[in-house]
Nucleic acid binder design. Structure first.
Lengths: 244, 244
DNA sequence: CGCCTTCTTGACACTCATCAAGGCCCGTGG
DNA sequence: CCACGGGCCTTGATGAGTGTCAAGAAGGCG
């Protein structure tokens, strides 16, 4: 099987909109210019406005905002197949920084190329908008979690959401997934201290629900975790392809 | 002075992009079809997808998300001059509900009309995108506040942000503004209990910083409040018009 | 080998939620 | 006119949930 056709992005968009071979090849052609970054490098800086979009091909990335007092709030993590700076380009926003969590590979796509691709293949544009819409929904869900969920539910929900996202691009199942995040990163994303994240993870492990350890997440009791977190994946699922 | 030319929306967009008379009149023509809603009515329901945008002309509105367990997280409040459901229409998102806080007047603008207006007056489109971008940035800032700010800072920051937004549409100054929100609404927006909101407000009042009472916010010490909240309005300001 | 990052655990303090009770204001109906 | 009820605000008492501080353990890497 040709690996370019199973790029994470194509795989993800294929879940939103059934794409033809022609559309897939347009999509793959956007992803030719690859570029690596080492772990911990800043890809976009808060306030900077960029005229290009990145597609994350491999590795993990986080987008975050630094408060004046130095505290950091991670807005979201990006995994293979996600866009970096898509909203920024569409809406000229540039209000948060983006940093690689692991070594990564990205494709830089000039805004013009992306818009041209959209013009030629509207179904592709639809698919990308859907993906952007889902990202949007995740931020809102994240907001609700910070505001209204207690720590264990918040952690559980986060791990489940990540699992669902990874499953979409072929990097995870209901059994678990590889996860390069440190507990410090979890803390910055979930608005908790690293120490408390550690305690909550232990608690979830001892309840036999999920094990987060050695860069791996294992769902010991998927159903139980869903019940604990009140996880409703509606905001992620588009069920089966919406356009066929 | 003609009141239609000083619609809150025109006033706000004028701060982003200097608009010509022709552009202003296109903008005002979008706002002819007015429609009232009583306080506490649901304008858009979570999950519903609408083919129209609303422009809020008068009154206040909140958009919120209801969690499976019944808890409510308010994502943002909208004030006169704000769009309701703009992102939903552009990106087909529909993941939160919208409810009137006071009696309101809105203008319903069919998506098609809006897009047509954009096509004819690209500077208007730019201005609206800027407004949408600012809303986006506010959600992220809100997220950071929930995750990383303690209650007093969170409340202070919220009141300051609202003041800055209201000033932009002529409903407030650095001295204060009329605010129809209840402490329960503040609680749902800031991820705190209503009881605790009450205590924090008392504390801020006793510190001589801000008075929230009888539907009015009075900044007793604007500078002090800014210092307490670490309020950096960069994400709201576009300083002076960016396009002239 | 020693340092550094990450994880782990305990002790303690403090923020904030919860429960409970009462007050104020205003609209409604007797 | 007054009594009642319902929002909304206010305040106290109490305890659970989290943050902070501190110390150590388990690896990876120069």
């Amino acid at each position: 099987m040709d690996t370019t056709v199973t790029s994470p992005l194509a795989r993800k968009l294929g879940c939103f909109v059934a794409l033809s071979d022609a559309e897939l090849s347009v999509l793959e052609r956007l992803q030719v210019r690859r570029r690596p970054f080492a772990a911990g490098r800043e890809i976009v800086h808060q306030g900077q406005s960029d005229r290009a979009v990145y597609i994350l091909v491999s590795g993990w990335v986080c987008s975050y905002k630094t408060l004046p007092d130095g505290a950091r709030q991670i807005v979201d993590f990006q995994i293979p197949g996600d866009f970096l700076g898509l909203r920024s380009t569409l809406l000229q926003t540039s209000d948060h920084s983006i940093e690689s969590v692991t070594d990564i590979q990205v494709c830089e796509v000039p805004s013009g190329d992306l818009l041209a691709a959209f013009a030629g293949t509207p179904r592709l544009a639809t698919a990308v908008l859907w993906a952007a819409s889902r990202d949007e929904a995740m931020v809102v869900e994240h907001l609700a979690g910070l505001g209204r969920r207690a720590a264990p539910q918040r952690v559980a929900h986060f791990l489940l959401e990540l699992g669902a996202r990874l499953a979409l691009v072929g990097f995870g199942t209901k059994a678990g997934y590889a996860c390069p995040l440190t507990q410090y990163l979890l803390a910055d994303a979930l608005g908790l201290s690293a120490v408390h994240i550690n305690r909550v993870l232990r608690q979830l492990r001892e309840l036999g629900l999920v094990t987060f350890r050695d860069g791996t997440v294992v769902f010991d009791d998927y159903g139980g975790l869903v019940a604990l977190a009140d996880f409703d994946p509606t905001y992620l699922d588009q069920e089966r392809p919406l356009l066929t």
